[in-house]
């Protein structure tokens, strides 16, 4: 993504399964399939619910209806929204509530069977009930996927994560088990933040 920003410069290493992400030889289409993203603002495509879920598969050349039907059902069930939309798969995804739309976006990410799901503040635009559904979903999804979630909400980090990495002004101050970070952090900056001394 940073390739599109002229002033962006990146150095260092990001290894995904031992292979460098930023090598020019990296197949970015394959990378996008293996690392799914869910954004802060839900972004369903202006298509039906069904076509949103199968979008990645169609791009990959999969058009067999039975296969697509199976993936749609499995993905929507995995995203805990099947029962809410199974009778209106051909309706526009733009007519869904914010929480439903965000779960459709998670289902769309799951449909191509990624290894990692990056979630960028996935609940910041949602009401508390929808947030709870997404957080419960994260707990269920981690058995199949590795999840990285960006959050500015300390309580959410404490509720959903196994590991917390605390950043301050571009530096990674401390990373470790979430329980330890929130009860016995090693760095004073972390303690000052979680105890509300700044923020």
């Amino acid at each position: 993504m940073n390739d599109l920003v002229e002033s962006a410069r990146i150095d260092g290493s990001i290894l995904f399964n031992g292979a460098e992400v930023n090598e020019s030889s990296t197949d970015v289409i394959s990378l996008r399939r293996r690392i799914g993203m869910v954004f802060q603002q839900s972004n369903p495509f202006p298509k039906s619910i069904y076509e949103n879920i199968v979008y990645g598969l169609r791009i990959a050349g999969v058009n067999d209806k039975a296969t697509l039907d199976e993936v749609v059902e499995r993905s929507l069930k995995s995203a805990a929204i099947w029962n809410e939309v199974k009778d209106r798969l051909n309706d526009s995804a733009l007519g869904l509530s914010g929480g439903q739309a965000q779960r459709i976006c998670i289902a769309r990410a799951i449909a191509v069977n990624p290894e990692i799901i990056l979630m960028d503040e996935p609940c910041s635009a949602l009401d508390p009930i929808s947030t709870l559904k997404i957080e419960e979903l994260i707990e269920e999804l981690k058995s199949k996927y590795t999840i990285v979630i960006v959050t500015h909400n300390m309580q959410q980090a404490a509720r959903v994560s196994d590991v917390t990495a605390f950043f301050y002004l571009g530096e990674l101050i401390e990373a470790g088990g979430t329980r330890k970070i929130f009860t016995n952090p090693e760095k004073k900056q972390t303690e000052d933040y979680i105890t509300g001394r700044f923020g």
């Binding site: 994260i138 707990e139 981690k142 058995s143 199949k144 996927y145 590795t146 999840i147 990285v148 979630i149 960006v150 959050t151 500015h152 300390m154 959410q156 980090a157 959903v160 994560s161 196994d162 590991v163 917390t164 990495a165 605390f166 950043f167 301050y168 002004l169 571009g170 530096e171 979430t178 933040y193 700044f198 923020g199």
Partner: peptide, 17 residues
């Protein structure tokens, strides 16, 4: 690590995560 949830946390006004 695999099959873990890692949270990137920072202050609300900062975008480093």
């Amino acid at each position: 690590a695999r099959h873990q949830v890692t949270a990137f946390m920072d202050r609300p006004v900062v975008a480093s995560p």
